[in-house]
Simulated assay, not measured.
Amino acid sequence: MDLTNKVVLVTGGSAGLGEQICYAAAKKGAIVVTCARRINLIGQVKETCAQLSGKPAFAFQLDIADPTSVASLLDKVANEVGPVDILVNNAGFGIFENFVDFQMTDVYKMFEVNLLGMMVLTQRIVIDMLAQNRSGQIINVASMAGKMATPKSTIYSATKFAVLGFSNALRLELKSAGIQVTTVNPGPVATEFFDKADPSGNYLDAMGNHVLDPVKLAERIVRSMERPKREINAPGYLEVAARFYTLFPQIGDFLAGGLFNKK
């Protein structure tokens, strides 16, 4: 797919990986729609995207956990931008904490943001694609935590396992319509995600050089818009570990609870 003039909508686009996806898509000539709660930050992302693409760019405030906010966003996009060609569901957050210490309000919120809100937005976008008989792509940013759970990631892993299950079924449902579904399963990425997930900073320090560069990962994601693929897994050694975990679960538990447990 040539991304020139394609409408790419990115949730969680105010900073981190979402911001970099916006920039990488803009460099390919896409019309970028960046969405997040922090309206001051997405305004800056919008301006940069317009400069990079030489085309209009848009910024709309979105609380993905609020269905009313999702409906308002879609009305604005329909009226001011036009049909969405590629949806990138990037919004999400995590908290690394033992399950017995978790506040249940945080559990509900994480499911609302990481899974349920994403489903509401995706359904509306897909309905529009099908009604207009248009091909397109849904890119869901999941996590390696959705393939291989580790201690202190009970709730975050649960949400991401659900994102993967949802995406895998949706891919099969939409195949005949020419709508691609891609899942992105990264390990730790050097973004402000960890400001909330692990305020101590110990996890990123422990991971050292294994932490992913958001710019490079964003470029890889945008390349998958041009040549759609089923999954993007990074880094490579964690993809191998996740497959090993599935094939040899008892050894996998030992590794996930030891070698790969840096929280």
Rank of each mutant, 00 (worst) to 15 (best):
T4K: 14
T4I: 14
N5W: 13
L9G: 05
G12Q: 05
A15Y: 12
A24L: 02
A36N: 00
R37V: 05
R38L: 03
I39F: 14
G43A: 03
Q44T: 11
A65L: 02
D85M: 01
G92W: 14
F93C: 04
G94I: 13
F102N: 00
Q103C: 14
V113Q: 06
N114C: 03
M119R: 09
Q123M: 10
R124Q: 15
D128W: 07
M129K: 04
A149K: 10
T150H: 08
T150Q: 08
P151T: 02
P151N: 06
I155L: 06
S157R: 06
A162F: 09
L164W: 10
G165W: 05
L170I: 01
L170N: 05
L172D: 15
E173C: 07
K175M: 13
S176K: 15
G178C: 09
I179H: 06
G208P: 01
H210T: 00
V211T: 04
V211N: 04
V211P: 01
L212G: 05
V215E: 14
V215A: 04
K216R: 07
E219T: 01
E219C: 01
R220C: 11
E226L: 11
R227D: 14
I232D: 13
A234G: 05
G236D: 12
V240L: 15
A241W: 10
A242S: 15
A242L: 13
T246D: 15
L247Q: 08
F248Q: 00
I251A: 09
G252Y: 13
F254Y: 15
L255G: 02
L255M: 14
F260N: 03
K263P: 06
